[in-house]
């Protein structure tokens, strides 16, 4: 489950999809529709994923659109001086969008609270379908946690729930760093195996 497959691609290999950033940037600067299309094609999934992970699925399409608009306009104003840094530039814009949205959420929440509307906090999980999936996953995880060895369970709970640092867990449980990593990996793999099996059983009832 946990992406334990070794991949042979490098950052550069992947990024390199060696996008000719300079050409792309030049197209956008010239307001060429092909440039915008290419920018969207290369980054839309990643931008969407990043925004969704940070802010949840609300208004996601609008946010993605806003992000590309900001990037394109900034490039057209000549704010991206080094085209090779396009990826970093897009990331910076996306991070600013996230920070601005969080600030906006905090302000509106504070405003609502001041008006005594109660804590109308936006739910990051959001729609009913996602809520149901999250609950269901949690129930599966609960069954899985109960079925693994107490020691593995404790490692997971300490690390993920109590957010204890690895050093503390190792010290208190008498583990070396290697043992800790090994135990955690095994527990994670076991979790993945059982979880997958349980899900498969439910999906295929007969």
């Amino acid at each position: 489950m946990m992406a334990n497959d070794v991949d042979e691609e490098s950052f550069e290999d992947c990024q390199d999809s060696a996008h000719p950033w300079a050409k792309l940037v030049e197209k956008i600067r010239l307001n060429d529709p092909d440039g915008m299309e290419e920018l969207y094609r290369v980054f839309s999934r990643g931008v969407r994923y990043y925004l969704c992970r940070q802010l949840g699925p609300q208004d996601l399409d609008d946010r993605v659109h806003d992000t590309f608009l900001v990037v394109a306009q900034a490039i057209q104003r000549g704010e991206l001086r080094e085209p090779d840094r396009l990826m970093g530039y897009v990331r910076t814009i996306v991070r600013r969008q996230v920070a601005a949205q969080i600030e906006d959420n905090v302000l509106s929440r504070k405003h609502q609270f001041d008006l005594d509307w109660g804590l109308a906090v936006r739910d990051s999980g959001s729609n009913p379908e996602q809520h149901a999936i999250r609950n269901e996953n949690q129930q599966i995880a609960l069954k899985v946690l109960k079925s693994i060895a107490p020691r593995d369970r404790e490692i997971l709970i300490r690390f993920y729930l109590w957010e204890q640092p690895a050093e503390q867990i190792c010290g208190e449980m008498g583990l070396t760093d290697t043992q800790f990593r090994l135990l955690k990996s095994r527990a994670k793999a076991r979790f993945g195996q059982i979880g997958k099996r349980k899900v498969t059983k439910r999906l295929v009832p007969f």
């Binding site: 489950m1 946990m2 992406a3 992970r53 999250r134 996953n137 949690q138 129930q139 599966i140 995880a141 609960l142 899985v144 946690l145 109960k146 369970r153 997971l156 709970i157 993920y160 729930l161 994670k188 979790f191 993945g192 979880g195």
Partner: peptide, 17 residues
């Protein structure tokens, strides 16, 4: 997947405790 795993353990661990 990593996020799902972490959130699953957090939720389930909390319920367990």
């Amino acid at each position: 997947l990593e996020d799902d795993f972490r959130q699953g353990v957090r939720g389930a661990g909390f319920l367990l405790l």
